[in-house]
């Protein structure tokens, strides 16, 4: 369990993290969202014991990060922002070093390294110097390093930044598989990642926690929540749609000529829209219900907050 109370970090010119409090239980995958400079990385640096907070406390699996730093750090696998690694080492040497620091020796060390390499598919670059790796491979080395000791708490700062689509998929699968009975915290600018991966989304802006709920709840805040998009063969009678109960309005999508019927907050309009389509005999090529658009929610939550 992670328990954070009144966590605050002030730098000379500004407050980077402002009175954050939250608790995370095993099995949760938490996504930190927020504009650039919101304080996501700074929060992670305090969770991992790199930066001392100005105020507040962090407890990792019962260990106070300020007082029992080493015990707490043993529970954590951490991918810092930008995935820094010792560039003069080869991938194998680097993972060997990390494994030794984590206390493994001999056969177990070898097995752990092999497993980490397999998990993030590093086989083809094992003997390559890290400096000569591409950005995505460097990130994967950082990930391998973080999961080497099978930590109870995994803190990943932008884990999929710079990865190709296949690798993004692979890393998400990896994170999901690791999440069982563990705690995973990721930060990301990829909103769909949050709905694909996280059980909980925290929106941070100006160092403050704005929203802490499930990705579904976050999506529900969208004005497109429960909206129905219709792509019809011929123009349809809008007034009929407009008159349906629970319909808030209609928007045009000039790109493909479809229309989006918006639902009033808390209303489900798909059944009535569907009935109407059948009753009128409209030729509909595509019909889609939306859960909500995260980018729109994100914008409206953090609008004008860009730091």
């Amino acid at each position: 369990m992670i328990k954070v109370t009144h966590l605050t970090k002030r730098f000379v010119q500004k407050v980077a993290v402002d009175d954050l409090s939250f608790t995370i239980e095993p099995g949760e995958v938490v996504g930190f969202l927020g504009p650039n400079g919101a304080g996501k990385s700074t929060t992670m640096k305090m969770l991992t014991g790199f930066l001392p907070p100005c105020e507040g406390k962090v407890s990792i699996c019962g260990f106070d990060i300020g007082k029992q730093t080493l015990q707490a750090q043993r529970q954590i696998g951490y991918l810092p922002e930008g995935a820094p690694c010792y560039g003069d080492m080869t991938v194998a040497e680097f993972l060997h070093f990390i494994g030794q620091i984590r206390g493994y020796r001999g056969q177990e060390l070898k097995q752990r390294i092999a497993r980490a390499i397999a998990l993030v598919e590093l086989q083809q670059v094992v003997e390559q110097t890290i400096d000569t790796l591409s950005k995505g491979f460097k990130r994967r080395v950082g990930l391998a390093q973080a999961v080497l000791h099978d930590p109870k708490v995994l803190i990943l700062d932008e884990p999929t930044d710079g990865l190709d689509p296949n690798q993004k998929h692979q890393v998400r699968k990896l994170i999901k598989s690791l999440a069982v009975n563990r705690i995973v915290i990721i930060s990301t600018h990829i909103l769909e990642e949050v709905s694909a991966l996280c059980t909980r989304a925290m929106v941070i802006s100006h160092g403050r926690l704005l929203v802490d709920e499930t990705p579904y709840e976050l999506q529900s805040r969208s004005r497109y929540h429960q909206a129905v998009t219709i792509l019809a063969e011929q123009p349809v009678d809008r007034s009929l749609l407009q008159a349906l109960p629970g319909v808030a309005g209609i928007e045009d999508n000039p790109l493909d000529g479809s229309i989006t019927v918006l639902a009033e907050a808390g209303q489900v309009i798909f059944p009535v829209v569907n009935q109407l389509i059948h009753a009128q005999g409209w030729q509909v090529r595509e019909l889609e219900v939306e859960r909500g658009r995260l980018d729109e929610v994100f914008r409206s939550l953090t609008r004008g907050d860009a730091a």
Binding site: K45, T48, G49, F50, L70, Q71, Q73, R74, I76, Y78, P80, E81, G82, P84, C85, Y86, G87, I98, I101, R102, Q145
Partner: peptide, 14 residues
């Protein structure tokens, strides 16, 4: 400069 200090200082070493 390379940021590895963040890695080093978050590993369980004194």
């Amino acid at each position: 400069k390379s940021g590895t200090i963040e890695l080093l200082m978050t590993l369980p070493i004194t």
